[in-house]
Design a protein around this nucleic acid. Structure first.
Lengths: 234, 234
DNA sequence: TGTACATCAGTGAACGCGCGTTCACTGATGTAC
DNA sequence: TGTACATCAGTGAACGCGCGTTCACTGATGTAC
């Protein structure tokens, strides 16, 4: 199925609009996206935008979906840069890529993980699976490491709280992932830890406190990955 | 120095305005505070607010300062509920209180740790010390535990990355706190971890994933506190 | 190759809205002699 | 106790602004015969 010329132009215009929206969010905060401001910067009038997005909310939703996919793409690509059987470096690389992406796209990160637009609420049926796609990358590495017998998490990471384990079992059953609750637990623990550091850094609370945020982040994820029993290849 | 009746009335009105502002933020998001909306709810006209706050930004700043102090108060009070020499329970209690406060005041928490108001930027000279006051509580417990010989952090928490240690030394020297870089490091590690879980929970990303967020949080902070070598009193 | 028509991108005016802030003002409350 | 004055809380009109969205429209671009 070939795209016609006019379809292609339409697509390009959509991308251009989203790009300008991202730029303006970066400058003035996620909450201040506006059709008129975008149109102005593009040298258009506001109603012209309606050729490409039926409303402002649709534009924002498109930005959010893009953000999720961008992040997941970045993680997947990062994973492929390491030898398949070097689980320690695969996980480290992916966790580093997560932060790198967040710092490079602070606005998209806030759009994904915050709630910055006043009247807007992203529908969970879009939001939740998109979040999941991101850390499937993390969990896959853990699963493969465990199957290869290369991960030996210390016991305090394997005792999943019973109520949490229930939820995990439900999720696993519903989605049919070939993983154990323990793996989910490890992955989500990674996730919450990096999330805290990144959020604080994005809002300028970590920098004044630790100075070298790179080093702080690396040390923490290294500790976490090692606690999960992964080791650098010797 | 006694407060006159009119000063007291003025003070009460300020509080009332802030209260309505908080309520409206809770309902429609932090970004949508508005003088006119507040005045409307109070049965006043918008210019009346100017009797009490010179501008909208001053109102917001007052809310932020209040938030910092409220949180710090809550932590300090939580700390006093435990026996002085039961360092494990003191730290656990304080970390639990941190989350409890955040969940009870989600709006204030976002106001403090996010950047949700479009045109507004809190001056760092107010922001940074206020953040610090919060985790001075945490660090104090760690310091006292260490002095009492009751804390034995595992080595990976004591090897502060050199560049980070430099910053800590500068901060310690400048503020004259009687603490070591290692203690700061432990405290801030606690802080970033709880922050990640809380932020994700506030924005409804953790709940769908782990179900019982209480249990998840407890398990993670217990792990962290134990990793720092604190033990429950037998 | 030329003509007739359909599709498309974008305009400009208008809608109704809410916003922060200013200004001169009105009553009511408190204070001093 | 009564009068004169100052302070205070709050009003109402107005300022200029930007916003999302609708509507009927104008040209330009592409397509079919």
């Amino acid at each position: 199925m070939m795209k016609s010329l006019v379809e292609e132009r339409h697509e390009n215009a959509r991308e251009e609009i989203k790009q300008v929206a991202r730029k303006q969010m970066a400058e003035k905060g996620t909450a201040s996206v506006g059709l008129r401001a975008i149109a102005r910067e593009l040298g258009l009038t506001a109603p012209a935008i309606y050729r490409y997005f039926p409303s402002l909310d649709d534009l924002i939703l498109a930005l959010i979906v893009d953000g999720f996919n961008d992040l997941a793409d970045a993680l997947e690509i990062a994973d492929t840069t390491q030898p398949r059987d070097d689980y320690y470096n695969r996980l480290m690389t992916v966790l580093l890529a997560y932060r790198t992406w967040a710092l490079a796209h602070p606005t998209d990160f806030q759009l994904i993980y915050g709630n910055p637009i006043p009247g807007f609420h992203a529908p969970p049926e879009i939001t939740v699976p998109a979040v999941q796609r991101g850390f499937v990358v993390v969990i896959t590495i853990l699963v493969e490491a465990l199957q290869a017998g290369k991960a030996h998490p210390s016991p305090e990471y394997l005792n999943v709280p019973p109520t949490v384990e229930r939820t995990f079992l439900d999720i696993i059953e519903k989605d049919g992932y070939p993983i154990t609750p323990q793996m989910l637990y490890l992955g989500i623990t990674c996730w919450t830890r990096i999330h805290g550091m990144i959020m604080l850094e994005l809002f300028h609370h970590l920098g004044p406190t630790v100075g070298d945020t790179d080093a702080f982040y690396c040390a923490e994820i290294e500790r976490t990955v090692k606690a999960m029993g992964l080791q650098p290849k010797t």
